[in-house]
Simulated assay, not measured.
Amino acid sequence: MAFLVRTALRSMPRLAGRTPGLPAVRAFQQGPLAASLVRQPSLGLRGFSAVRYAETHEWFESEGEMGTLGISDFAQGALGEVVYCELPEVGAKLKAKQVICTLESVKAVGEVYAPVDCEIIEVNEKLGDEPALVNSSPQSDGWLVKVKFSGSTDSMMDQAAYTKHLESESHE
């Protein structure tokens, strides 16, 4: 997302027909192109939830001892169009860093890891018919599993730290 914002902001002088500076930013932010070029993600997350990210590009939204797991927008973009999701069975118990499921795309097969010790309580059945939901809506309709978990998610990153992590990975 930060990449899209930077790209859009770099294009502002050309789009707004002005020189760089604050007036151009305001003109861009208020102009009709702003909504079409810089789209805010529709996360569908409640305000009291805690969304954290793993270095391996999974997101985890926790509420109490329950949580929802999926892959980040960056991960779905790197993976390409998902054509098959191999999801675990309800009731499966996993330790942190174990493979929780695999996603097959036209380019590669990606593994998704459990961020904490957990038990699968629900899988996203929609992905059987529409695996591309992982691409089109990775942080809402494209969630993978819901779990009951134990342990702490403190080692995971918040949104700001994850954005910095992505920037550091892009420079490597």
Rank of each mutant, 00 (worst) to 15 (best):
F74L: 09
G17K: 14
F60Y: 03
A132T: 05
A108I: 05
M156A: 09
K107I: 13
S140Q: 07
D141L: 14
E81G: 07
V123I: 12
S42N: 06
S137V: 01
V99H: 06
S49C: 11
P32V: 13
V90T: 10
A132Q: 11
S11K: 13
A161G: 09
F28W: 14
A92N: 01
C118T: 02
G67Q: 00
V134I: 12
S11D: 15
L87P: 00
P13H: 04
A114H: 07
A114Y: 04
K97W: 06
K93S: 14
S105N: 13
C85P: 03
V109E: 11
A27N: 10
L144P: 12
A2D: 12
L43A: 10
L103F: 14
V116H: 08
T102D: 03
D117K: 10
L69T: 01
P115F: 12
A96E: 09
G142W: 09
L166G: 03
K148M: 07
L45Y: 08
A54I: 01
T7V: 12
R10A: 15
Q40D: 13
A132D: 12
E86K: 13
K97A: 08
A8G: 15
D129Y: 00
A24E: 11
D154L: 09
E81H: 15
R52W: 02
A78F: 05
T68L: 04
S136A: 06
D141A: 14
G17S: 14
E61S: 06
S72W: 02
S137L: 04
D141R: 09
S105M: 10
V38Y: 02
L37T: 07
G17R: 12
R14E: 15
S36C: 10
P41E: 08
E119P: 02
A35P: 00
K146H: 07
K164H: 11
D158S: 05
V109K: 09
L15H: 13
